[in-house]
Simulated assay, not measured.
Amino acid sequence: EAILFPEDASAHQAGIDACRRGHATDAGAPSPETERVRCLLALRYQGDAQAAASATALFDRNGSVAGLEREHLMDGGYRGTLHLVPELPVRAERRHLEWTAAAMADIDAFVADLAAAAGSPSRYRHRALALRYFRSVRARTPSAYATGWTVAYNLAGSLHRSADAVRETLFHEIFHLNDSAHGGWSQAALSPIYDGIVARCGTRIACLAPYAPSETVVKGGTYYAFQPGNGVGEYAAELAIRYYREQRAALRGEQPGKTPFKCGPPENARAWSLLATEFFGGADRVAPCQDGAPARP
C-alpha cells in the first residue's frame, strides 16, 4: 500500500479496505497477499486498463510493484536541488511502464541464462523490488536512483529515450542496490583500481577513454564513471552495465560491437573478474582476448 498510495491513501480508503478484505473464504479469512496486491494495482491504475494489465503482469512475473515516489526536494549534487513529484506511467506515459516490464523480463532471463555458465551461484537480486515513478519539475535529471531495494524512475528522465536505454538504466540502478547489500562491495574491491586510474588521468577524456566502461559523458565534464563527486560506486555501476551488455550479447550469439572491455588495459580485466566473481558466480561467456586470457586479480 505504501508503494502504490504513498500520499493519497485516504482518497482511496474504501478501495484499499476492499482489497484488504479480498475474496474471503467461507471461514472469513483474508485473501492471499498476491491477490491483495493485484487488487491494489487495479485500484491504483483504474482509468488505464492497459497500464493496469502491464503493472499486474510485471508483479506476477517478477514480484516487483510499480507505484509512486513521494513529492520531495532532492539534493542532486552537481545538478543542484531538484523538485520531484509523483506521477503514474499511464496514458501518454504508459510506454515507460511497458519498457520497465520488458526490461525486468529481460534481466530475469539474463540472470537465469548466465547462471548456467556460473562456477558458483549468482548473488544478484533482481526481483521483488519497489518501482516508484515520478517527474522532476523543470529538469530531466536524475533519470533514476536506487535505495533500499527501491528504484525510482523519472518519466522525464533524459536517459529514457528507448526500451534499450531503460533496460540498461534499470540494470545500473539494480546494481547499486546489490552493491549496497554486499556491504558496499565496490568501495572495498574496486577503489584501488579506480583510484589508480583517476590519479593517472584526472578528468582528461582522452586518457580515461580506454578505462571507461560506457560512452556516457557528463555535459561540461568527463566520463560519467569518472565524473568528480560520483565516486567508485558509479564506476562500478557502469562496469556492471558493460558486463551485462557483453554477456547478454554472448548468450544470444551476437557479435560484440567493440573490443571486449576485459581486453583493454589490465585494470579493466581485474575489475571485470572481480565483479563477475562477486555477483555472478564468476560467469564469463565473452570470448577470451586474442592475445591470451586477461589478467586475474
Rank of each mutant, 00 (worst) to 15 (best):
E1M: 15
I16K: 01
T25R: 11
A29S: 10
A42G: 12
F59Y: 00
N62H: 05
S64M: 11
E69T: 05
G80S: 09
G80Q: 11
L88I: 02
V90S: 10
R91Q: 14
E93T: 13
R95G: 09
H96Q: 02
E98W: 02
E98G: 09
E98D: 10
E98H: 04
E98I: 07
M104P: 09
D106P: 07
D108W: 10
F110Q: 03
A112E: 12
A118Q: 02
G119K: 00
S120M: 05
S120V: 04
Y124A: 05
L131E: 01
L131K: 02
R132P: 03
V137A: 07
A144R: 04
A144T: 00
T150F: 03
N154W: 04
G157F: 11
R161I: 13
L170D: 00
H172F: 03
L177P: 03
A181Q: 11
H182Y: 01
G196I: 10
R200P: 00
Y211F: 14
E215D: 15
E215Q: 15
V217T: 06
K219M: 13
T222M: 06
Y224S: 14
V232W: 14
Y243I: 08
A250W: 13
G253Q: 11
F261L: 12
F261Q: 03
C263W: 07
G264L: 07
P265W: 13
A269Q: 06
A269G: 07
F279I: 10
G281Q: 00
A283S: 03
R285P: 00
P288L: 15
D291N: 15
P294K: 14
